[in-house]
Design a protein around this nucleic acid. Structure first.
Lengths: 175, 175
DNA sequence: GCGGACATGTAAGGAGTTACATGATTGC
DNA sequence: GCAATCATGTAACTCCTTACATGTCCGC
């Protein structure tokens, strides 16, 4: 993010709450810890901006050394992310230990959250589509990450509907 | 997993390499550490089985206390998993620092891995479909987690194709 | 008066990874 | 001869979360 534009820790935290949060996340505590670490390593620098009414802001910017480290990382293959989905553990193991109703409710709750995420991403997509062709070209790569979010959440919701249908069928068979 | 059947640490590790690995993962080191911790907490017990030709096996089984702890957790709502996908960071930030060709190659590499995962999951699905109706009913919930894997990987691959198409178009526009 | 946005952190601990360590058997 | 499978672990470290800590301004 700092390679795109300088920012304060607070602003970076806000970005994680927005669209970027779909594929990467860090709490505000972690952001401040990592900024301190990266400053120590010489990857970023900061300027303090005094404010009279609010606390001072520390505006962080990437350094050449930081940009080099980032370039090296970008050229190094990474392993695909491994998902850890506790909800699926519940479905996998829950059978004998809790009622199907409990699992259904949890599924519905998660479905609602994913639907909300999807709605947010679709709004961002509409904003993108209203931009000029030149702007769209400039934002092509971030747009692809947005598309990953949209297709991923859509698939999640479709699966949840499939799963909920299967569970309610089972319930009707053996009441 | 131990709530389904007793197992050794090695066997649990193997399960993570199989279908379960799609939604949860633990290295063999972590498995042994967690088994030791859970034995200390009284959630699991083990019997040592001597073997003359190979190292002794420790067969772990869940205890009542462990089953209670699991039930409690199953009834507690969990937060949806947050993904951390380094590949998307690369797309998001890579634009100015590496060539599109590097990103395309990384995308293709990941696509191949996801395709391999999908193929494995589809084999497991075929095995499931060849079982009797009674067996299928008994395995309904684990099957739903398998379906999540299949729909999730399918969506990932479809997105990768979309992204690769967009990137190769861009290349043709400005050679 | 209260909650939320703005703005920054520290401390402790739990979760997970990487490196190290050992040793037999089986198949190419 | 070498890699893979079976079978177990320890030690050190990093990554990430939870809890604690402070203070102002703005709108309802």
């Amino acid at each position: 993010m700092l390679s795109a534009a300088p920012a304060t820790g607070y602003e970076l935290s806000q970005q994680f709450k927005g669209g970027i949060g779909f594929f990467w996340n860090a709490s505000h505590q972690q952001v401040y810890q990592q900024l301190a670490q990266m400053a120590k390593d010489g990857w970023v620098q900061y300027e303090t901006q005094s404010q009279t009414d609010k606390p001072d802001r520390k505006i962080y910017a990437i350094t050449n050394k930081g940009r080099e480290a980032l370039s090296r990382w970008l050229s190094t293959p990474v392993a695909p992310s491994k998902s850890k989905d506790a909800l699926l553990i519940k479905l996998f193991a829950g059978e004998t230990l809790v009622s199907v109703a409990v699992l259904q409710e949890e599924l519905r709750r998660h479905r609602a959250i994913h639907q909300k995420n999807l709605d947010k991403l679709l709004v961002i997509e509409q904003e993108y589509r209203s931009k000029s062709a030149a702007e769209q070209r400039a934002l092509q790569l971030p747009y692809l990450t947005l598309r990953r979010g949209i297709t991923g959440e859509t698939a999640w919701i479709a699966w949840a509907d499939e799963a909920l249908a299967a569970l309610s069928e089972q319930k009707n068979e053996s009441p």
